[in-house]
Design a protein around this nucleic acid. Structure first.
Lengths: 339, 339
DNA sequence: GCAGGAGTTGTTAGCGTTAACAACTTGGTG
DNA sequence: CACCAAGTTGTTAACGCTAACAACTCCTGC
């Protein structure tokens, strides 16, 4: 019994001794090298099993310079959109054999993004996905010297990095065209905060659809994505005479709008039609169930990992831009214009 | 110019040479060892700054056996509760100087938990927080041989590990007592799935409040947390004669219940009072705004990290159990019983 | 029977850091 | 002025793994 009976975890050398081979052969088995006799391989595998050996990935990372860890930087993962995106990213990364380290920022300014990136770089991640829905974040990303392969999600034309995003403009058009097709003279808009690229895209889609139809675009009301801001916008809209159709930039604000209308006795969809954006799980059960534009966050997460892994494993190649189309979901909050 | 002009990142030895000291002195400066002459320290710091040196944490982890990374295992971080908890955990961990690696499980059975734990152990995390709201997860945690310090969130009496949780029973009581105090004869309950500890706790609180008041507890209706399941339960309740008060185990199901009532022409709160659980950001803007029980997910996340870090840094000590009280939030979905 | 090549295994040398210990300064003291 | 302790710095050896190379086995073909 030469073994120290300490509870020290077994290392490669222990396995080697057990199997009667050199530690390098154990390494070869673990890394699926071709030139190992199958009988030897079996013996090593048995020793590994017997000892309950698990390879030390930290030591491995030190020599290979790859940690098989990906970093994710996101803004407020409490929100449904970011949470879903990060979830998709995490699932896809794990499926691709990568660990995921997450930094969830409270405010996503230049310094915040830089700190997060430094932090992840220190940790030794192989690559980074930055969920950068705000202009400032995208800008920061464009400015920063990026040491690692990076993919931006919703990052606009973010500098030299690859981007995966939902086609917000198309979504805005979809919502607006639907309302126009129901015979509404024009469509009002409750937008997200102006420094969000998504908000900007939806506004652009809304405007262009109105323009194509030869309609005047009313002044949009700006919200901050929260139900409360939607509620406030809803109160304003309810007090106006000629509002018959509203496109709200996300479902949470749409909920606030619906609430304000209900309070003011404005009936939806009889008097005013409302379209949201996102298709959160709750939307189907709003009163009335909300017609909305669905974003496939899962696909966005998956694609961002695909792009990143391609960059990681295929060496440096030109940057990509992947656009995920939104989908129109019709429910009961929209109806043909009366009169 | 002895420097190879490759773009190799500077290592400790480079800093040492630049500062005219040994690499060990650099290490000492970096680790705040007391016995370094302040003049030397300055010189080293300048060299670090000049070279843009950053310590390689992988190499450090190899020798110290500490990665300063914490693992988090959670179930479906798309849901508001888990997402908020994980967010709180991440913020607290970063504040305490730890990285966070996340595994988000689709199904949280024994094998899933074990795999996640193995996965994190491989990666070399120092400790783990398991968000284990299901009985099966808590059970798995109790059975598994845990190699690392572990904290369970919502983990019931999970084996030998420390637990941080919200007092679900108290929450259930709070909701039920409120409804009884409004003069309702009894309170119906739409519960979460029975294999969730949170669901069980809320049921227990509801039952005990009814019992204390000497009332009969009706058969609870089981949902699965989704708005749809709440909707279905709501339809059942709407078809029954004597229902005047309902305690729904989460806000999303409560939304479904409200929707079903609206469809069936049952007025809330005039005919039926409804109380939810969680206080998601949307609840305030439901029709009507939802009276509910707020869970402080942020506090839960913070506390779980506090407990874990205490275990990590203070050596092994007895397991703790930290209970966060829920808070009653009154809005417009409840009213005095008519008649 | 032996050269040559492919397949298989072992040996050695790092990766970049910290720990342990050795060795050199100081400065105060008898 | 020698001596010891405290303060400061350097040297060496791990940590557990993979890469590079060396070396050995076996088979084939002439």
């Amino acid at each position: 019994m030469g073994s120290t009976l300490g509870r020290r975890l077994p290392v490669m050398a222990d396995v080697a001794k057990e199997a009667g081979v050199s530690h390098q052969t154990v390494s070869r088995v673990l890394n699926d090298h071709p030139n190992v006799r199958s009988e030897t391989r079996t013996r090593v595998l048995e020793a590994i099993d017997k000892l309950g050996y698990r390879r030390n990935l930290v030591a491995r990372a030190l020599v290979t310079k790859h940690s098989r860890t990906l970093g994710v930087v996101s803004f407020d993962t409490t929100l449904y959109g970011p949470a879903s995106t990060v979830y998709g990213i995490e699932q896809a990364a794990r499926a691709a054999g990568y660990f995921v380290s997450i930094v969830s920022l409270k405010s996503i300014d230049r310094a915040g993004v830089r700190d997060a990136l430094d932090y992840l770089a220190d940790q030794g991640v192989d690559g980074v996905v930055v969920v950068a829905p705000q202009r400032s974040a995208a800008q920061a990303l464009a400015d920063l010297p990026l040491g690692k392969p990076t993919v931006a999600v919703e990052g606009g034309q973010a500098g030299g990095v690859s981007v995966v995003c939902v086609d917000q403009v198309a979504g805005g058009r979809l919502a607006t065209e639907h309302l126009l097709s129901l015979g509404h003279e024009t469509v009002w808009h409750v937008s997200g905060p102006f420094d969000w690229l998504e908000a900007e895209g939806r506004v652009a889609g809304w405007r262009s659809a109105l323009k194509d139809a030869g309609r005047e675009a009313p002044q949009p009301l700006a919200g901050d994505w929260s139900p409360r801001s939607g509620y406030e916008a809803g109160r304003s809209l309810a007090s106006m005479k000629n509002v018959t159709a509203v496109f709200v930039a996300n479902d949470q604000m749409a909920l606030g709008v619906l609430r304000a209308f209900t309070e003011q006795g404005v009936r939806v969809p009889e008097e005013v039609s409302v379209v949201g954006f996102d298709d959160i799980p709750e939307s189907e059960f709003f009163s009335p169930p909300l017609t909305t534009i669905r974003q496939d966050f899962d696909a966005v997460g998956r694609h961002s990992i695909e792009v990143l892994v391609r960059q990681l494993e295929g060496g440096p190649q030109e940057r990509e831009r992947l656009v995920v189309p939104p989908r129109f979901v019709t429910r009961l909050s929209t109806a043909r214009a009366s009169s």
